[in-house]
Design a protein around this nucleic acid. Sequence first.
DNA 1: CCACAATGTTAGACTTGGCTAACAATCGGA
DNA 2: TCCGATTGTTAGCCAAGTCTAACATTGTGG
Lengths: 131, 131
Amino acid sequence: MIKTNRGFSESLEDYLEAIYVLGGQNVRSVDLANRLGVSRASVNKAVNSLIEKQLVEKERYGGIYLTAFGRATSQGVEKKHQILKHFLTDVLGVPEATANLEACGIEHIISADTAKRIEKLIEAKKKNDPR
Amino acid sequence: MIKTNRGFSESLEDYLEAIYVLGGQNVRSVDLANRLGVSRASVNKAVNSLIEKQLVEKERYGGIYLTAFGRATSQGVEKKHQILKHFLTDVLGVPEATANLEACGIEHIISADTAKRIEKLIEAKKKNDPR
DNA sequence: CCACAATGTTAGACTTGGCTAACAATCGGA
DNA sequence: TCCGATTGTTAGCCAAGTCTAACATTGTGG
C-alpha cells in the first residue's frame, strides 16, 4: 500500500540482487531463473525492465552485465540483506534458513539509515558478548 | 518472490489491520479508503476478498465487521506492528514517522516467533537502560 | 560438423490490486 | 419530508509480474 521503496519494485530488486550475487558479469538467465524459482520467460521480462532502468546491459542471446549504477544499487540491497541476516541469527537467534527468508523481504523495506542503526546494534552486542 | 506470508497478501493484511484499528465493528468503507489512501472502489474489491476468506462480514450497503477469525488474524498483524514500531524508535532511535512506515512493511514479513524475539530484545534493553 | 540439448525470446493468458466514471442507496439538515 | 451530499457498488480499464507453449538461437559431444 504505502511505498517505502526507493524507486524499484521489490521484484526487480530481487532480480538485481541475484545478478550481483551471481557475479554481476556474463550472468545467464537460466541461472537467475533457478536461483529465484521463476521461469526463463519471467527472467527475460524482468531483465528488459532492468535494462530500461539502466541497471544492467545485455546483448541479444548474450550474458547480463551490471552497469555501475546497477552494481551500486545491488550492493546496497545485498548489504542490507547481510546486516539483517546477522541481526536475525546472531542477535535474535533465529534459525539461519528463516533468517535468510525474512531478510529477503525486509531488505526491500528498510532505509539505509535504519540498516546502519541495526549494524551498530550488532557491533554493540558483539562487544558485550563476544562469542 | 519467495513468499514468507501466512496465507494472505500484504495488501489484504493492510486492509484487515485497518479494519481492526478502526474498531472492527460497523467500519465504513470511506474511512478505510481515507486511512489507506485508496479509492472507495478499491476498498470494495478488497473487502469482498476478505469476505470470501471469511475474515470479515458485511451486508450490502452496511458496515464491516471482523469475524472471530479476522479479529485474531488482524490482532496478530497489529501486534507485530507495535513491536516493530517500538523496536525501531526505542531501541534503534528511528524517527517515529519512518518507524511507522517501515513497521508497516515488515509486519507482513516476519513470523510470530521473530516478533516475539524482538519483543524480548526490547524488554532487555528497558532493563539495562530504563529511561 | 552437425544434430540434439540447452538456453533465450516471444506471444498470449491469468491474477492481483490499483484507478475513474457512472450509477444506486442512504443519510441528514432545512 | 425530501433533496442534495455522502457513501457504497459496479463496470471497465490498466500495469506488474507471473506462467506455459512455441519458436529461435547457441553450444557441444559423438
